[in-house]
Design a protein around this nucleic acid. Sequence first.
DNA 1: GGTGCCGGTTACTTCAACGGTACCGACCTC
DNA 2: GAGGTCGGTACCGTTGAAGTAACCGGCACC
Lengths: 127, 127
Amino acid sequence: MTQTSPAPLAADFFPADCPVQTVPVLGSRKWAWKIIRCLEEGPRRFSELRVPLAGITAKVLVESLRSMEQDGVVARTEYAENPPRVEYALTPLGRTLLGPMDAVCAWSREHLDSLLAARLEYERDDR
Amino acid sequence: MTQTSPAPLAADFFPADCPVQTVPVLGSRKWAWKIIRCLEEGPRRFSELRVPLAGITAKVLVESLRSMEQDGVVARTEYAENPPRVEYALTPLGRTLLGPMDAVCAWSREHLDSLLAARLEYERDDR
DNA sequence: GGTGCCGGTTACTTCAACGGTACCGACCTC
DNA sequence: GAGGTCGGTACCGTTGAAGTAACCGGCACC
């Protein structure tokens, strides 16, 4: 019962369905956030997406788009024209991601310097 | 110049120092968010953290804490007592992460169902 | 009929995070 | 001196995202 210690943490501190548990889409997919940004203004074609996503390979872009499609944040529309045209767009669900994304981006804009500085200092001190 | 297409995306759409570029800490570290939540109310000891983070091994917890320490979001304090005591706490920088984290958690709470439903539907349709 | 574009696919490799097990050093108690 | 607690480290294996490179079918243009 010291005043410095908060209440102890229980083993079930995180419920089984805790949202932070499965933070989906966002984590693990390196390109997902950028892709969402690229689709923010409207549908884009496959090769159109490759321009701003400099360095991405077709394979990784396809994989990322497929998994985002699977998660329901991106919709794929195929047009039987020629040359073949395929458009990717944000779904309504995908659009709801823009809010949290902005929050994280704002954080990053604001604090990235501190973070990088901390890394440098850590190297100096403890290496 | 069709009305369906937004302006084209330039190759330098993402500036080199784009915050989304290096979304640090948050991405890639599976346990980071949970650890931050555990430290929200105050400093915690190493073994105290292992309770709510059910299933984490000492090794992974150490790795995660080290990398978060390196990023300046967590501070490690060693007390020369016995048995040895080590406390981990959020730094002021670490605390600024709680805002964006809440935004993402709120999104997850609100839309996780839709996302999981989308996954099921994707399996049904395209498999 | 050869070339190129579009939107991919396939196979192979690399790499970092995660996971499992074992063990360690200091200090304590029995 | 045997065993326990605390906060780790060392070694090794697995997994999944990402990168590299080659190729493909359909159509248009020359």
